[in-house]
Design a protein around this nucleic acid. Structure first.
Length: 278
DNA sequence: CAGTAGACTTGCCGCC
DNA sequence: GCCAGGCAAGTCTACT
């Protein structure tokens, strides 16, 4: 599910709620997701001050004031649900694997049917040396935004298709299958082009369109295909703004003439307009 | 090292 | 109506 815009939406919802608070109770309903849950998670984290909530690539990071960071990845189908404990009816389901009760009376649920998501605990000051953080590429929307020359140099070294390059988190952090296709359509670049064939001018346009599409998706609260929802239960709305993703056989929104093509690259669907995107 | 195929897992869509 | 098989927001591992 969650690519950068979805994780950012969740981060922005959790931040004002949890910073300065703590967890009173952490209930794990199974021993593992993708990886075993952190050992003694409740003992180690409960009643500890949450000092900072942030996002890096598709990872949520919860920093605790005693020096540990809870690394939270949502996998493909992970979802975060925020409910007020005073609400009349609280949701629960068979895939609610971890439930956090907060000091300000909220219930935070980690729901993940496919269990590709995970929670890991690691010392905050050593995060940068932990895989995958040590090889993660730059943030497209960071305080020090990814520069064109850096992206162009990284692409120059790769012979894989530009679509696959955009999915490589070591080149650029946070893009996934939806937004890679959408950004390439906006930039009028064929997903089949070799990454190393992009000219500097094309890389510049691509980077601008990546940033635009991510910003617009964040404003829309992300994209809901099936499992994803904003933490308040609303769907995301960016799926209504897709120009190519899941639009095979529908006419291109740019030329209004060519049906959108679906191809498979490295086992993943790619959608594009064969006429507009060169 | 670079690139690709397969693995993990559950559930939906819809073929026959 | 039933149900085979493909497909899905991600990323790690094993192999060439």
């Amino acid at each position: 599910m969650p690519e950068l815009p979805e994780v950012e939406t969740i981060c922005q919802a959790l931040k004002p709620l949890l910073e300065g608070q703590s967890f009173l109770k952490i209930q794990a309903n199974r021993p593992d997701l993708r990886y075993p849950l952190p050992v003694n998670m409740e003992t180690v984290l409960s009643h500890k001050l949450i000092s900072l909530i942030s996002r890096r690539a598709k990872y949520l990071l919860l920093d605790f004031s005693h020096g540990l960071t809870l690394i939270w990845h949502l996998g493909m189908s992970g979802r975060v649900i925020i409910e007020n404990l005073n609400a009349l009816s609280l949701n629960s389901g068979p895939h609610d694997h971890v439930v956090f009760i907060t000091s300000n009376n909220y219930k935070i649920t980690f729901r993940d049917p496919r269990r590709f998501g995970f929670l890991l605990l690691y010392p905050t000051n050593q995060l940068k040396s932990l895989h995958p953080f040590k090889t993660l590429g730059p943030e497209p929307l960071g305080d020090i935004p990814l520069g064109v020359s850096v992206l162009h140099a990284a692409l120059k070294r790769r012979t894989i298709s530009i679509k696959n390059a955009l999915l490589d988190q070591r080149i650029i952090a946070g893009l996934g299958n939806i937004y890679a296709s959408e950004a390439l359509w906006q930039a009028r670049l064929s997903p089949r082009r070799g990454a190393n064939t992009l000219r500097l001018k094309e890389t510049k346009i691509l980077l601008i369109e990546i940033q635009n599409v991510l910003r617009r998706a964040i404003s829309a609260g992300g994209s809901t295909l099936r499992d994803y929802a904003q933490p308040n239960g609303d769907t995301g709305y960016f799926q209504y703004s897709f120009n190519v993703y899941k639009r095979e056989h529908l006419l291109c929104n740019h030329c209004h003439f060519t049906p959108i093509t679906r191809i498979v690259q490295s086992g993943r669907a790619t959608y594009y307009c064969d006429k507009c995107q060169q």
